[in-house]
Design a protein around this nucleic acid. Structure first.
Length: 272
DNA sequence: CGATTTTGACCTGCGC
DNA sequence: GCGCAGGTCAAAATCG
């Protein structure tokens, strides 16, 4: 099951909502299918720390960040920044990468999208910097980096080998800037200058035409149960600052989350 | 002409 | 140590 390879770690800092907040869903006609992987065990992602085995809204929303995760993340940030600067002055063969330090990764979050196009417009500008053939898939994986200066967010896009109509997008890192594209001004992202989840946001989905028909699945599930949504997922989110650690906002988020995350997901990641 | 994509080479981590 | 696979770089090509 290739989909099991999807990694997503939001344990280090960001909740699903934060991810939504900082990675607004494209307003195209693609059908969004989010695939959190609660029980994912990924050897490569040391950051997988806080994935609730039974994700409920509270667990997901509550931002945040176990300390270990944050620590790791911050190390990553600083390390990467140094590294980046070094890279710019050296040729690729002279890359003075930190050897003793195992390269740590930023929190990642993967989701599936039923879409015909590979590269979904999520409101940010991305530059493709690589493409590789994937072992277990006939489809190549594309690598994108956020074009905003200083923002090291990356994303990988690949098609599911099981279902070519499904695009698996993996975001890595957190945007440190608002989305450059704000359709009708409806996306107001208050990006935390620290670039971190402090920018806990809550969702407001004002679009009446938004229908809660997305189906979610966990990639731990043995089969792809994708029932596509018929609703176009409009990116017309408004983000309001809210402390996710406040019970009140949790409650509120919970309510909002219902619009985004179906109860099925919030309850038991039941395999089917 | 600047921004973006393409693409082959290189680097790194990991399993054997 | 070697080979494989994933990830990244950067020059060249392409696009708007």
């Amino acid at each position: 099951m290739d989909l099991l390879d999807i990694s997503q770690d939001f344990g280090t800092a960001s909740s699903l909502l934060d991810w939504f907040a900082q990675n607004p869903i494209p307003g195209s006609q693609q059908q969004q299918t989010f695939v959190p992987s609660p029980a994912q065990t990924l050897p490569e992602t040391s950051e997988v720390l806080n994935n609730p085995a039974t994700p409920n809204s509270s667990a997901s929303i509550s931002s945040s960040s176990n300390e270990a995760g944050n620590d790791a993340f911050q190390q990553v940030k600083t390390g990467d920044q140094e590294e980046e600067q070094d890279h710019h002055k050296t040729k690729k063969q002279l890359k003075p990468k930190k050897k003793n330090q195992k390269r740590q990764r930023e929190p990642r979050f993967a989701f599936m999208t039923k879409s015909e196009v590979d590269h979904l417009d999520d409101g940010y500008r991305w530059r493709k910097y690589g493409q590789k053939a994937v072992k277990n898939s006939p489809y190549p994986r594309s690598y994108y980096r956020c074009t905003s200066a200083g923002c090291g967010v990356k994303k990988r896009v690949e098609r599911s080998s099981d279902d070519p109509s499904i695009v698996v997008t993996t975001y890595e890192g957190q945007h440190i800037h608002p989305s450059p594209i704000t359709p009708r001004g409806s996306i107001g992202i208050l990006a935390d200058p620290t670039g971190f989840g402090a920018a806990t946001s809550s969702f407001v989905i004002p679009q009446p035409q938004y229908q809660q028909q997305h189906s979610y699945m966990y990639n731990s599930s043995p089969s792809l149960n994708i029932t596509s949504s018929s609703a176009s997922f409009r990116p017309a989110f408004s983000f309001h600052q809210g402390r996710s650690d406040s019970p009140a906002s949790l409650l509120r988020d919970h309510g909002l989350l219902q619009d985004i995350v179906p109860f099925k997901m919030r309850k038991e990641p039941k395999e089917e």
